[in-house]
Structure formats: structure tokens, C-alpha cells
Write a protein that binds this DNA or RNA. Structure first.
Lengths: 331, 331
DNA sequence: TTTCTGTTTGCTACCGGGTGCAAACAGGTG
DNA sequence: CACCTGTTTGCACCCGGTAGCAAACAGAAA
């Protein structure tokens, strides 16, 4: 098992200096046709390609972007990751996927990303308090950070999100139009700004319509089971006459779990007895088994904008993009 | 925006040489308590941490593992990615997620991984022909490769998979026991060895039971829609009397799509008119809306084994691990 | 032939660390 | 005090590239 060939070795083989070899591999460098040919031949023979690690060290740019993820329960992450990696790779960048969990928190991860000299950090659906950041005493050499699909709570860290206000307005309009008047909202466990925003808008817009008192309850976490359990305890505790007639869930996974429980264990009909709305438009929402009304985030555009900011083609600033209401049978 | 502090700067601040600084950050290095304290103090003041990029270049090990993924339609990838990144991070390794697609194929990706000097490449659910590898003329300096959750078709590249033979035997035994006698099998589009293996075992085991002639048809790709469409055309073309009484799908996503179509558009009952079996035990399979009988891959163990091989704690060799049949209402 | 200008090439210095050896510095012993 | 041994520290050189300057080499003009 031989090692990779180096520029020096190629230089020797081609009878030139190592700098000429490097020029042959630098687009637009000043090099004679003849020597370029010689070098490329020798390089091909030795199977030489430049070592990106060494290049990164010298140029101070790794072409690597750290992507922090902390919630793998939401299947919506997967298409996002697909789009994100694809766009990054189109820009010659590569994603370093960092799993934020109890053993590896944001501070750890950020330090790590900094030590690896990544060009940028994308907080994909994760967020941390600004104190965490200042704890690090970073913010000087730190790679630029961007938040994707969640509000940024940190000064100077832009976020790219789906327009929650618009989304919730469309949803509430739709529900009002369909005649629902006793709305409920199910949140996930964590007290996240994005979640709070959605809830707040939901409550506010109903108030605008003259409907006060949205029932709000919370699931343990963002999973189908947790959604089911939250609905179960709600339905058990609530007199049938007092029940909501439409339940908006913070994301699709909660909604699907909720729907199962509503129809399965309680034998209620969706949407006749209780309508359900989700958020994200996860693939299976469209299946005839669920046919869930939901709201689609503009994934492609969000990714394009954030990658644009990462590459510097776009000004880094918080951007909210309009999504699309997908009306199905569940409302 | 200052740059990161370097060992040299810390050395100056602490009044020692840069090598002493490095020793202070090298576990087990020979350094006096007193100077270590001085160095660490100075380092803390300057917010110094070693530059992993430079270290990688010098030590010839990046602690990065490239993970190739080419099928983001299967939500099962997500929990696998979660487990994988978690285990890798526990070993001080980090995953570089590479999206294999038409714009960025295996050859490209492998070359890239090699140029970045990753410590290993994990082909997660992807596979390529050995000719592709030899095309590259690599195999000398190339990082060691491992295949996860798919058969390896390449000599010397070990794979960690779920035991397909055992799985299919259990499934067929279960189905036979339940009285099904007209089995069908739905594959995804691609002609993958893993798919072929599953199908072959399925056919073989039925033959052992005295049941010849398994109906086999194929979906366009691995998605719920494709599964639905494949079933639609099958049901349209097949006389009700000739239809299979149980349909095994190559993975859960196909199965869920198939189930939707069977029940929704054709108004058939599952499992009475046609039973359905999936593969993977994706979270939503357990929901009451589907309650799909499926087979769970031993995710945790598979990941542990492959990470063990990556770190060198385990001998690199092809390993198949037993999964578990999950019997639900769909059979 | 000399001079000038533009291209090509080589070189030094550097990116931020790691390795192995040799010198310097202990502390204990004869 | 010389001597030996073990620890600590400094150093030259290396990892594989990149940047920018200066020398060498053209070819054309004077």
C-alpha cells in the first residue's frame, strides 16, 4: 500500500520543479503549454492529485461546512439534508455532519468546527442561547454561522426560515373558511422560539377572527408516539362536547401520530369529528391513509439562499421565504 | 476579527518554546508539571486550541470518515445516520456526508475523499461495481472502504449487513404459517445485489415449502409513490382470482405506498384480501393507520461493528447480523 | 547587437502543527 | 566534586501544499 504521490515526486518525474507541477494544477496559472503537458503526463502516471488537506492549511479555507443537527426524529430532515448536500457539493463544498446530543453539545461542536477550520457552520434546525456562544468567548476567529429552518436567537447570526406569519395566516384563514371554530394547538416538548412563534401566530390570528382561547397542549418530544400520547391524554381528560374541532400540530410527525390515535383508539373520524393540520409536508402526509393538510416549506429556495450566504454570493441576513399550504382530506 | 492563536503565540506568552506548548496538549508527553500549568494558563488566556487541520497534515490522519449516501428517499437512512454519527463522534471521528448523485458519482466522491485524506469511507447503502474501482486505479493509497447495509460486490471491501437469509426465512415461515400460498414480491428499480438476494431467498424458501412461482414486479424507484404505482399496474393487469394473497415489498416505503393503493384506490382489505410485508421497521410502520408487518435491522449493532472496523478495533471482514421479525396487523 | 517587454520558472518563506534526537537540567550516588 | 541516570526542553526537519518576488528566458523592436 503505497502512499499518495506528492507534487515533489511528480516534479522529479517530469524534470521540473514542484512549483511548476502545482501551476499545472492551478487554473489560470502562468505555465507553458509544453511543461503543463509534461507535468500532467507524469501526474497521470503516478496517479497524482493535489492533497486538499495541505491546500486547506495553506489557503486557510477548507471548503468544508459543518452542519449541526440535533433532531433526527423528524423525517423532514432527510430531504433537507439531501438538498443541502447537493447544493453544497455543486459549490465545491462538502458537509461535515455533526450530531448534537447530550454527549456532544453545541459548545463542543462549535469548538470542534473551529479547530477543523470549517468555512461555515449551518445550524440546521438546532439553536442555542446566545449565552452559550459568549461562554465560548468565540466570535472572533469563529467560522460564520447560519441558522436553517429555525429562528436565530443570536445577534449577528442570520437565519433562513419559512415565513411563519404568512404560513399561519393561510392556515387559520383556511380553517376559518371551512367553518372550524374551536381550534387546538399541539407543540413539541422543547421551548423553541420557532415553536413559540408558530403558536403565537396561530393564537393571534384566531383572535383576529374573533375566536379566543385556543387549547394548547404539549407532546413530550417530536415523535409520532409522543403526538399520539399527547392526544390521548387530551381526549381522555376533555369532555367530548368541549373538544377542539381542529387540531394544528407543530409538525407532521406529531400530526400523524395524533391522527392515528384519534381514529384508532378513539374511533373518531378525521376531519368530521376532529380535523388535523400538520407542518412540513412530509412525503407520507400525502398518502391516502393520512391525507394530511399541511404546510410545505420552500426547501429548495431555503437551501439555495443559505448556501448563497455561505459562499458569500448573498449578503448574510435573516430571510423568511413563503411556503405553500397543501390542503388535503384531513380538514 | 482576529485569527486563531497558534502554538507559537502561546509559547511566547508563556515564555517557553512552541514544542513545549505542543507537549502540553499531547496526552502522555514528557513535560514538567510547572511548565504545563504555565502553558495551559497562557493558552486559556489566548483562547488557544490546537489546529486539527495542521495536525491532520502532520500525523497523516484526519479523524474524518466519508459517508456516501445515494438514496435519501428511504427515511430509514435518518436513524441510521443518527446512530452512525453518534458512534463515530464517540470515537473522536466525524462524518463527512457525501451525496452520491448524477452530478457527483462514486468515482468523483472517492477521489475527493482520497484527496481530503479521510481515514475511511463508509458506503452507506450505496454500492458500485468493482470495475468502477479499478477504473480509478486506486486501491493503494485509498482510504479503507466499508459497505453498510448493503452487500459488498468488491473484493476486499467488507460489508456489514442484516442477515438476509435468516430474515427471509423467518418471513416466509411466518407467512406460510398464516396460510398464505400465493406470494408476490415487489422490488425497487435498481438491480442491486441486496435486492436480488432478498428476492432470491424469498423465492427459494417458498420453493422449499412447495410453493413455486412467486410473482415478481418492480417499482420505478424506492418511494411510496413508486410502490403505489407498481401495485396499481399490477392490480389492473391481474385478474382478481389470480392475485397474490401476500405481497412482500423490498422496503417499508414501497410497502406503505402499496398499502395505500391497495386499500385506497382498490378498496381491498389488508390483510384479508391481500397481506403486505415490508422491510426495515420504519417508525410509522407501527402506527395504527398501517400496522405493517416488517423486519427490523439490527441498527445499533451494525453501526457498532462497522465503526469498530473503522477504528481498527475489529478485524475488517464481512459480517451479517440477525434482525427481528415484527409481526403486526398487515399479515 | 543591444534593449525592452512579457512569459515562464525557481526560490524563499510560510500555513500550524508533529517527530526524533541531542543538549540542558535536574537529583541521587560514590 | 565527579559521575551517572532520568527528566525536561530546544531544535532541525518534515507534512504537502500556496504566495509573491526575482531571476531566466524568450521574442520583438531599436
Amino acid at each position: 500500500m503505497r502512499k499518495r504521490a506528492t507534487a515533489r515526486e511528480v516534479a522529479e518525474a517530469a524534470g521540473v520543479s514542484k512549483w511548476t507541477v502545482i501551476r499545472a494544477f492551478t487554473p489560470g496559472a502562468s505555465i507553458a503549454e509544453e511543461s503543463k503537458r509534461k507535468v500532467l503526463e507524469a501526474a497521470a502516471a503516478l496517479n497524482y492529485t493535489p492533497n486538499l488537506l495541505a491546500r486547506s492549511l495553506a489557503t486557510n479555507s477548507t471548503n468544508q461546512v459543518a452542519v449541526f443537527v440535533d433532531d433526527f426524529a423528524n423525517p423532514q430532515k432527510l430531504p433537507f439534508l439531501e438538498t443541502l448536500t447537493e447544493r453544497l457539493q455543486a459549490e465545491e463544498l462538502v458537509a461535515v455532519l455533526i450530531n448534537i446530543n447530550t454527549h456532544f453539545d453545541h459548545v463542543h461542536a462549535l469548538l470542534h468546527a473551529d479547530q477543523r477550520q470549517v468555512d461555515a457552520v449551518i445550524l440546521f434546525g438546532t439553536a442555542f442561547r446566545s449565552e452559550t456562544l459568549s461562554d465560548l468567548q468565540l466570535g472572533r476567529g469563529t467560522p460564520p454561522m447560519f441558522v436553517l429552518a429555525r429562528d436565530s436567537q443570536i445577534e449577528g447570526v442570520p437565519a433562513v426560515t419559512c415565513d411563519a406569519e404568512l404560513a399561519l395566516r393561510e392556515i387559520v384563514d383556511h380553517l376559518f373558511e371551512r367553518g372550524y371554530r374551536r381550534p387546538g394547538f399541539m407543540t413539541g416538548a422543547t421551548v423553541l422560539s420557532t415553536a413559540l412563534r408558530r403558536r403565537q401566530h396561530f393564537v393571534d390570528f384566531w383572535k383576529e377572527k374573533g375566536v379566543d382561547g385556543v387549547s394548547v397542549f404539549s407532546a413530550e418530544k417530536y415523535s409520532a408516539d409522543a403526538g399520539a400520547e399527547a392526544v390521548r391524554s387530551y381526549l381522555k381528560q376533555t369532555d367530548p362536547a368541549d373538544r377542539v374541532d381542529v387540531l394544528m400540530c407543530e409538525n407532521d410527525i406529531l400530526a400523524l401520530g395524533a391522527m392515528d390515535e384519534i381514529r384508532g383508539r378513539f374511533g373518531l373520524r378525521v376531519p368530521e369529528d376532529m380535523a388535523v393540520v400538520g407542518f412540513d409536508n412530509y412525503e407520507l402526509c400525502g398518502s391516502s391513509a393520512y391525507s394530511l393538510t399541511t404546510y410545505e416549506q420552500p426547501r429548495q429556495e431555503m437551501v439555495e439562499v443559505i448556501v448563497g450566504m455561505v459562499t458569500g454570493q448573498l449578503e448574510p441576513e435573516t430571510v423568511t421565504l413563503p411556503g405553500a399550504l397543501i390542503v388535503r382530506q384531513s380538514t
